[in-house]
Design a protein around this nucleic acid. Structure first.
Lengths: 360, 360
DNA sequence: AATTAAAATGCAATCGATTGCAAATATAAA
DNA sequence: TTTATATTTGCAATCGATTGCATTTTAATT
């Protein structure tokens, strides 16, 4: 009788052990033990390594499913030093352009077996630094970045380029760092926007632009200037305003422009948000758009076609940029070795004419 | 001479070794070796464990910085089973409501030392499943979720609730799963929206709603019905349409409603997107809003106040919901043990009256 | 100087999956 | 049947940080 009691005790112990296991996770070792094979075989089978015979693989897969096995990516990533994860860092996800880029990135990444983790910096430098440090510590396989407006030093990004971790910039790129870049033809965008205003008879064209340490805003300004020069129009410094392009900045900018001795008869805004502020302000003050002042924005935010008057703007192919960025990045990740020289891809911009510049 | 040559060879070997090390990463073992101490001491020092004396900590920190040490979060997470990462899964990041929620989550998470990884499902069930599997495999410490419109089975989410991994739902919640939930008072939102239309003299009020398997849309519909009943107005089944609430769905819905024998004199739309479609369609067909038909939307998307006529709508406190969700989640993560009973937090909704329902 | 307590540091196992190489088994050829 | 070859599977080390427990060092007390 005593031995039976012992057996019972033994059984309940194993039950407890099983129970405890259930608390934690099933590992390949649990599967291996159950099937009386080696963990390495289980690992290979679950990774579809052709070196494992069909019957064993089938058996292992079946058992894994039965036991509710979930791979511990953390362990695998730690061992292989590959996370199959790409990080996306950008200023603000709630901008149509940026979320289009994200969709493009996701499309390519998911179909290549990569997960995507998205972070927004809110154009805050400290947050950008912290996020990028975290992504590095989490050992993402690569990074797709559009920097913030305040960002003027790049050590956090050099961390990646120095260590040869694939890095791709888009839109707001860092010229000082050698990496692939996907940009839009901002110069041409600024040029055709301004030229369009000129063609409609404007001669005193103001520009509300972004901070000049950011290349895209510098380029848009250059486009504006060249179009002015080409038409033989003078560039009045009082007509140039640079700020952070928020709703509020836009309102302040138009207020200031209207205080000028010479009022503008057209404004080229470096984004749609400021164009919107300007339009609303002018509407509230009885100044007709486009009759008195015509406006062109930049980016083609969805609201641009909804507001009255609808905003003429420059379209940027966000989705395509995202796809391209992800393709380049994944390419680099896969052929780790040879660091092919970096390329910069320039996507076309396109003018969309709407009411704010006088559709005709 | 020969010995000197040997020394030279030796030196160049160590140089090569150093070089090779530089390729890889500095680890706590490298630091320990350099300082002739144990790796455990380094680990403790860098984690500010008070058991390490001040001088040693200082020395270690200094050396770590000099050697360019970057913690390998992967290794630490693997060992401790804590990633300090919370996953956020939602249908679409490019919706003002959702991105407000994200900002709220981030605010709380970052200040508590958690990283946030954001994923969008595009209301696609397979993608939602895959994302959540991936987040589980990556062992996030907790999950904040708003499910997709197509989601009707919940095994992917049970994965978390079964394993007692903290889980918080917001907005589009799953009733069947026992977890904390943050919702808006959708019922009341539907009620006050409809009542508002009634007060403005409407009697034939249509409703364009979402799929009824999603609780928020069911609640908005209930609010609508109760307001109608309270006013003694009949509910005409022909006035009720349910779809996925896209731009296109909205256009189709208004077309269909206008084919009814009895045309509606007001429409309560379950989101602003369909309200927008309706307004644009009516504008294009010469039907005056709000004179002929008045409209109320839901969510207070930014475009709602920009379009002409501006859209009356229901405000949802996205940012606060996000903060609350993160607080609850992090609370759970920290006091892992006692599973306090789940709570559902209901946030207030608020009517914003604009032109589309006749401001007065 | 001897004893004891407290403070600081070190040892070594551990987490779960992967992988080079060795061993065992099955299959084919002699 | 034996040998050679191909096919499967197993062994054991490894990745980097953490942590319970043991050991050493320092300080305090008698």
């Amino acid at each position: 009788m005593q031995s039976i009691a012992n057996i019972n005790i033994f059984i309940s112990f194993t039950e407890i052990l099983t129970q405890m296991k259930k608390q934690g996770e099933t590992t390949i070792h649990d599967i291996a033990r159950k099937l009386n094979i080696a963990a390495s075989t289980v690992s290979r089978a679950l990774n579809n390594n052709p070196i494992i015979s069909e019957p064993t693989r089938k058996l292992i897969e079946k058992t894994a499913k039965e036991m509710g096995y979930r791979p511990n990516t953390l362990a695998a990533s730690f061992r292989t030093k590959r996370t199959n994860m790409i990080g996306v860092v950008l200023p603000l996800i709630n901008r149509h352009f940026f979320s289009s880029v994200i969709s493009g990135i996701e499309e390519v990444a998911y179909s290549s077996g990569f997960a995507v983790t998205i972070s927004q910096t809110n154009d805050n430098f400290e947050k950008e630094e912290k996020i990028i440090q975290t992504l590095f510590s989490n050992r993402v396989d690569g990074l797709i970045v559009s920097i913030g407006m305040q960002t003027q030093t790049f050590n956090h990004l050099k961390l990646f380029s120095d260590k040869k971790i694939p890095l791709v910039f888009f839109d707001r790129v860092v010229e000082e760092i050698d990496a692939d870049k996907i940009v839009v033809d901002d110069y041409r965008g600024g040029f055709i926007a301004t030229e369009h205003l000129i063609e409609h008879g404007a001669t005193k064209i103001a520009h509300i632009g972004g901070p000049l340490n950011v290349k895209i805003y510098k380029d848009r300004l250059s486009g504006y200037k060249d179009a002015m020069n080409k038409a033989g129009l003078p560039i009045d410094e009082n007509m140039l305003i640079h700020n952070s392009l928020t709703r509020e900045d836009g309102t302040n900018a138009i207020k200031k422009l209207l205080l000028n001795e010479e009022k503008p008869d057209a404004i080229f805004c470096a984004n749609d948000t400021t164009a919107l502020s300007v339009i609303i302000y002018l509407r509230e003050h009885g100044i007709k758009v486009p009759d008195n002042i015509s406006i062109v924005g930049f980016s083609n935010e969805p609201f641009s076609e909804l507001v009255t008057p609808s905003i003429s703007t420059i379209r940027q192919p966000g989705f395509e940029m995202g796809k391209k960025a992800a393709e380049l990045l994944i390419n680099h990740i896969k052929q780790k070795e040879q660091h092919t020289s970096s390329q910069t891809i320039v996507m076309p911009t396109e003018l969309i004419v709407r009411e704010s510049s006088g559709r005709d």
